[in-house]
Design a binder for these strands. Sequence first.
DNA 1: ACTTTGACTATAA
DNA 2: GTTATAGCCAAAG
Length: 125
Amino acid sequence: MKHSKRLKNNITDPLFREESFFERVYEVVRLIPHGKVTTYGAIARFLGSASSARMVGWAMNHSHTVLPPVPAHRVVNRNGKLTGKMHFRTPFEMEQLLAKEGIPVKNDQVQDFLTYFWDPSIELV
DNA sequence: ACTTTGACTATAA
DNA sequence: GTTATAGCCAAAG
C-alpha cells in the first residue's frame, strides 16, 4: 500500500485473491480428493468456525466465479444429500460429476456416504 | 448501521 | 422414519 488508499475487497471479482472466509472455504474444497466428498459443517469446523456451515454454503454459491476452479460437487450436506444440485448449470450436473468419480448417487443421496466422506479436520495436518 | 438471507445443523416432538 | 424450530454469522441489500 503505497498510499493511504486501500484496495477494494471485492469478493465478487473472480480475479481478486484475498484471505477472506470465502477464499478459505475454496482452498479447502480444492483439497478434497477425487472420488471423495465432504460436508459444509466439516469445512466450517476445519476453519475454526464450527457453526458457520451456512456461510460455507453461501461461499459455494459464489464458487463458480473464482479461479482456480472449485470442485463444488464434492460438498454435500451432513447426510450425504446433494442439497446444492440446483446451483449447477443443470440440476443433474452435480450427480453426474460425482458418478464420474465413482461415487454412487441415488435420489440425490450419496450411497454408503461414510465410505466416501473426507474430513479435512482429520485428513489435513 | 440495520435487516435479511441462506448449497446448514442439532435438537425435539 | 418425518417435520418444526432455533441457532448460527458473514455477506448482501
